[in-house]
Design a protein around this nucleic acid. Structure first.
Lengths: 141, 141
DNA sequence: ATAACTGCAAACTTTTTGCTCGATG
DNA sequence: CATCGAGCAAAAAGTTTGCAGTTAT
C-alpha cells in the first residue's frame, strides 16, 4: 500500500515514519484541497496521537521536495494538493468554497504568448477563477 | 486635498473621520500593495494614535464598498491596493521580483467562457505569470 | 441626538519553534 | 548509533471582537 507520495518521499531521502505514511495516505486519497487543520483531523481519525505540528512540518517538507502543491484560495490558509500528473487551474465557488479543477490549453498558450510579448519566458503561473453558479437552481449536496 | 478614495467613501455614505482620511491618503499615495500592519505603520507616521484595529476595520469597510482591492500574494496576509481604473494582471520576474502589469482581453474573455462552460458566472479572478527575461541566446544561468 | 466609529485589550486562528525524547536507516 | 523526526507547549503573527467612550452628520 505504497502510494506515489511515499515513493517520491523515499526517493528524496526522507524517513518514512508512521506519521508521514499516514499523512501521505490521507493526501493521496483526498479529492479536495484540505488545509492543515483539516488534514490533521483526517489523520487523527486513523491515529489520534499524530500532532498538529507534525502535520505542519510534514506538509512543508513535502512541498519543499516538490510532491505537494500549496494553494491559498483567498481565505488566508494554506491548502495542499498532491502535485497532479497533468496541470490544472482552479475555479472557486465564492458561495460555497467548492473548488473545481479545469484546464484550458488556449489560456495556457495565451499566457506564454503574453509573457513572450513582454520579453519574458514563462516559468509558471497561478490562475484562479472566482465565480458563482449561473442560476440559483437546485443546490448541490 | 480630497482623493478618490475619500470621494467614493463619502458617496457610499461612510463617515469621514480623521482616521479614515489619513488611511485613504496613505493608500492613495501607495504605489505598492501594503498589508495592514505595514499600512498601520505608515499611518502612524502621521498620527500615532490611530489604532491597528481601526486600520483593519477601515480596510475591510473600504473593500466592502469596492474602493479597495484585496490581494493575498502567497504569504497569507491581506494586502490592499486602490482599485485601479483599468483592470490588470501581474507578471512577476522570478529573478528580480519586479512586477509588470499587463492586460489581455483575450485571456479575460476565455476566463469568462471557461467559467460559463462549467456552469458558473465569473465574478473575479487572479492571474499571475511567473517568468524570467528571455535570454539573448545560449547564456547559462 | 444618535448611529457610526474608535481605542484598548482580550480572544482567535493559523503557523512556527524550542526542547526533549524516540525512532529510522 | 547518529540523525532525523515527533510530541508538547509556548509563542509568533495576523485578524477579529466586546465594551465603553467619542464623533460626524
Amino acid at each position: 500500500m505504497t502510494n506515489r507520495i511515499e515513493t517520491q518521499a523515499k526517493a528524496k531521502g526522507l524517513r518514512l515514519t508512521g506519521q508521514r505514511k499516514l499523512i501521505a495516505q490521507v493526501l493521496a486519497e483526498a479529492r479536495d484541497h484540505p488545509d492543515v487543520p483539516e488534514l490533521h483531523r483526517r489523520v487523527a481519525e486513523h491515529d489520534e496521537r499524530v500532532s498538529l505540528a507534525t502535520v505542519y512540518r510534514t506538509t512543508k517538507r513535502f512541498e519543499e521536495i516538490g510532491i505537494l502543491e500549496r494553494h491559498e484560495f483567498g481565505d488566508g490558509r494554506a491548502r495542499y494538493e498532491q502535485v497532479p500528473r497533468e496541470h490544472h487551474d482552479h475555479l472557486i465557488d465564492v458561495d460555497t468554497g467548492k473548488v473545481i479543477e479545469f484546464h484550458s490549453e488556449e489560456i495556457e498558450r495565451l499566457q506564454a504568448e503574453t509573457a513572450r510579448r513582454l520579453g519574458y519566458e514563462l516559468v509558471g503561473h497561478r490562475l484562479e477563477l472566482y465565480a458563482r453558479p449561473c442560476r440559483p437552481r437546485g443546490s448541490v449536496k
